[in-house]
Amino acid sequence: MNKDIKNLPADGDAHDVSEMEASVNRLAELDRMAPAGMQVRIAAAAMLAARNAAPVVAGRVPAAHGASRQGFTRSRQWAMAATLLIGFGVGFSVLSRLSQPTPTVIDSTAAAAALAQEDMESWLTLTEATDETFTSAVKQLTSDTSRVSESVTSPTMISLDGDSL
């Protein structure tokens, strides 16, 4: 027999406290009278807490409270959105740069020197360009001597259209 059982009250003692037990039960019954609507409020709060605390992604995240876990998830979503945005930006920038044609340029100093010597072959070998655009640029350069001489003193890069870059 458990030694604690020996300490239990005798029947007479039990009768002594039965009245007190009844009073405490009345008090407890009074305290169980909950305010109207309490159970609905609590059920709603508990249900939301359970839903918020449920794992959202694979890999458990330790969180003491639903709210903090929710905060964590939200901040991670923001981080993912920012990463995607930056990724799109960089990708677009690279693609647009690749899609732009690289302008063919002529070293105007060498071109002017070749022109001064009336060396048309040198003109052609400067850029290895033989298309019409190049030809028209050469023509423009040839006709505009002042521009060529200026380019000799102040070297600039000239595009196929004849414009200074």
Binding site: L27, A28, D31, R32, A34, P35, M38, R41, I42, A43, A45, A46, M47, A49, A50, R51, A53, A54, A64, H65, G66
Partner: peptide, 30 residues
């Protein structure tokens, strides 16, 4: 609620305590 009410003597506070107990239970269960 009755346990909380017996100690804190305020229905509002007892309800608040009861709610936080159930929220804790919900979180731990999930």
């Amino acid at each position: 609620f009755a346990l909380a009410k017996s100690r804190c003597r305020s229905s509002e506070l007892a309800e608040e305590i009861t709610q936080s107990v159930f929220v804790t239970i919900a979180t731990k269960l999930s």
